[in-house]
Write a protein that binds this DNA or RNA. Structure first.
Lengths: 345, 345
DNA sequence: CTGTTAGCGCCTTCAA
DNA sequence: TTGAAGGCGCTAACAG
């Protein structure tokens, strides 16, 4: 086991520990000869620096804490992947905390007390571990103001935000607007939308994009085309049935997630309407399964990797006291598949 | 910022730093009065211990390194969740390393040089961070012998193994045997199997389970019923077409993953055969989408959470020098849905 | 029951 | 270009 330290190699190379430290970190010029000698001994003894000691001294760990509300929720792994991507390039390590919210308190976000305890202890542990900063990954975008106190350590939120901290979000409004534009390009004018829960920010923003498109393209506006879903398949199913029953049913449906789009497909199938011949569908999230359904569904891909990457980049700036220039919001991208038909009229 | 340390609170409470340490860790009896006083000051100053310093002294970090070959691959998040579950209960923290193999070198596992470099540097960084042990999560089960050297630190593999280290695997043979039994219970006797790549251990083990069932239940054995797939949808599709063309087509197909099962569904649909009326299908993995297909497919759920939990448990034993009693292998569980029909006759 | 103190392994100022 | 030495914040003998 690696009991050898800087002083062992110093002794064996006939230099001071300071010199070893210098060659290790390139902190100061060292004559080529001594450097070689030191390096040789390091190699010979298979020396591995002890980052713990280093961190204690430098008062920096080059480690950031990631608090994931639930790593098993679909957005989280890709975000973490983005965080890693940036981390790898800048020698930043990740201490992962998984709140396991889905399993521990389910979707009942009103149970704030329990939640707050979990979150507080997670932050507290991370702080004790002396992380240089924290990234918080929520399971759905909402206002987390006042729930977390990092005692001055920088924090960046994604899939969530507070009124005071930095947060990385993608552009929801643009996304639904773009989906609408695509549908309109394909000749659709009677377009319905099935939203997620209305207490959700993305739902509201995407609805804005919808309204914007309706207005700009001067589509016939019909309040009946706007259905409030709850993100689950059943609501996609039920609301599609309603839509299909309308005297003037839509020719296209924009579902705010792929799960509800599954319900749309099912309702259409049962009602004998062909997708995309009779009805077009666009989903959201580009979940893996959206490519496995039949028809394969066209969907908006959320830039999760980029969000993780940018969150880390932003945090890194904060950690160094630099300001982070928020640049552009990450943007969703339409994945064209087979669920949208050309409407010739 | 938390500049206050043990000595600040010692001073303010008129005790020695040792006493503070003792009340903090409960390492020694402290008179109630002093304890109260110390606790009060800790509270008052909002003191947070510095685990880095503590680790340096104790030569233990209570942190384990998790090396994931790719966190975005479906098995990984659930395994990590299991690791967290155990970790939460035992105050063990997770330093996560993501090799990002899928994105960096794809599925070309023959590119060992590149892989070895990534793995070696991951281990090396973790070792420098003084983790107390390592859990390795592969993207698919294979022999990793000789690829990783942890210099004596304990390591546990899952979704992968070596000839010398501990590994947590689920029971593949039992899984396919159980799936077969279920099919047989439902009256099927002509059962085909679509395997994954044959250089994969799970493929071979599951095939064993298949053979075992064929033998024990004295099913008519037909080599034509055994098809070699490659885990991808297209192979499920193509091989099903072949199966359907047989003079005596099977009444049920066991696909070694849900992705290939998607191909089975598609082929069946195109060939006008109804599932489950004319053909039954069982998948593997219980991927989320298996519940979204139509019909919803019956599949074998892999105990990922349990594997992560057990891997951590095993590692924890190793870390303490205790032997780990491997007990039972985690077992797969059949998720009954709608893709298997009762064959009367 | 409590205090004193020597490090853990490394970095970095100060001096040479 | 190099060394000596004082901590970083905490734990755990050892001593009282």
């Amino acid at each position: 086991m690696s009991n050898i330290g800087i002083k062992d190699i110093a002794a064996r190379a006939n230099v001071s520990t300071a010199t070893v430290s210098y060659v290790l970190n390139g902190t100061r010029n060292v004559s080529p000869k001594t450097r070689e000698r030191v390096l040789a001994v390091i190699e010979e003894l298979n020396y591995k620096p002890n980052d713990i000691a280093k961190s204690l001294k430098r008062r920096r760990t080059d480690t950031i804490g990631v608090i994931a509300e639930d790593v098993t929720v679909f957005n989280t792994p890709e975000i973490i992947d983005g965080i890693n991507d940036y981390g790898d390039r800048h020698d930043l390590h990740i201490l992962l905390t998984n709140l396991r919210l889905d399993k521990r308190i389910g979707r009942d976000f009103t149970n704030l007390d329990k939640y707050r305890r979990y979150a507080a202890s997670a932050v507290s542990e991370l702080l004790s571990k002396q992380v240089d900063g924290i990234i918080y990954i929520g399971v759905h975008t909402r206002d987390l103001t006042g729930l977390i106190d990092t005692e001055g350590k920088p924090i960046v939120y994604t899939y969530g935000y507070t009124q005071v901290d930095m947060a990385i979000q993608y552009n929801d409004e643009q996304a639904s607007y773009e989906a609408m534009s695509y549908l309109i390009e394909k000749g659709h004018r009677k377009i319905a939308i099935i939203s997620g829960l209305m207490d959700s920010i993305p739902s509201r923003l995407r609805l804005n994009g919808y309204y914007k498109a309706v207005t700009e393209y001067e589509l016939p506006f019909d309040p009946q085309y706007i259905k409030m879903g709850d993100w689950e398949r059943e609501s996609g199913y039920g609301l599609t049935k309603e839509l299909l029953q309308l005297p003037e049913p839509p020719s296209a449906i924009l579902a705010m997630n792929d799960v509800m789009a599954v319900g749309v497909l099912q309702a259409a199938k049962e009602s004998g309407v062909q997708i995309p011949a009779d009805l077009s569908v666009i989903g959201f999230d580009n979940r893996e399964f959206s490519d496995y359904l039949s028809p394969r569904i066209t969907t908006m891909d959320i830039p999760l990797h980029e969000m993780g990457y940018k969150a880390m980049e932003a945090l890194h700036c904060l950690m160094q006291g630099k300001p982070y220039k928020p640049a552009e919001m990450p943007v969703c991208r339409l994945i064209e598949r087979d669920s949208v038909g050309l409407l010739r009229n």
